[in-house]
Design a protein around this nucleic acid. Structure first.
Lengths: 122, 122
DNA sequence: TAATGAACACGCTGTTCATGT
DNA sequence: ACATGAACAGCGTGTTCATTA
């Protein structure tokens, strides 16, 4: 087993978190996540969102709706093609299993870090 | 900057923690650390201790005393060569800088994990 | 067997670059 | 510039193997 939780599953967790509420697309989800993490002092690389999305697609937890054009007011090019994501039919169920696993990981990592803080900084 | 804290600095922190109290050697420190982490659900690979020790040596925070023979009661071979470690002259000062950096890392990681726990599991 | 440490393999991830609109 | 994604490079680390007493 790995020492710490990876960035990939962490991001996937937030992708699901966002898609719980609404459909969205890559960069939009990423900038939302960046907003959360900025206060914690970390900025994930933009490209990581696509790796997370790819894995969730392969696991058939999410799917793409067909590409859609989003209007861009005022710029030279008024339309930008984006790819929207949403849960699949059984996606939410599968997501629950994934999240259950990840909860364990999170707690384990929190346990180790808290221990290190307690033992070494006091 | 990296997403999560690495195992290496984590282990180095505990090496220093142990050497704060007494001299020790690789496997002994590792088994002590394994004892701590076992309750948290993780077992680090044994060889990692040597990588940590190597880095602390290179940073001149710790040094080796000369090799010493440790008695082993009852077995066929009664002596086992071990390498004892202790702080260098200025080691404790340097260690403080290292720990100061690592405290920041720890807090940052704790912040992110707690956020993920709060946002996704409630 | 206890102890040290080297060697190997591989996944993760941070950065950069390519492509299209 | 916005959005997607491929490609590359390097580090960390988990496992295994080698060596010595």
């Amino acid at each position: 087993m790995a020492f710490m939780i990876g960035q990939r599953p962490f991001i996937k967790l937030y992708i699901l978190h966002i898609l719980d509420k609404r459909q969205s697309y890559g960069l939009e989800m990423m900038s939302e996540l960046k907003g959360y993490l900025k206060e914690e002092g970390y900025t994930p690389p933009t490209s990581e969102i696509y790796r997370g999305l790819e894995e969730l697609l392969k696991a058939e937890i999410i799917e793409t709706t067909h590409r859609i054009k989003k209007d861009h007011n005022g710029t030279a090019r008024d339309f930008q093609e984006i790819i929207l994501y949403r849960y699949t039919e059984n996606g939410r169920q599968k997501a629950e299993e994934f999240k259950k696993e990840l909860k364990k990981e999170l707690d384990r990592c929190l346990g180790m870090l808290k221990l290190a803080a307690k033992d070494n900084f006091k």
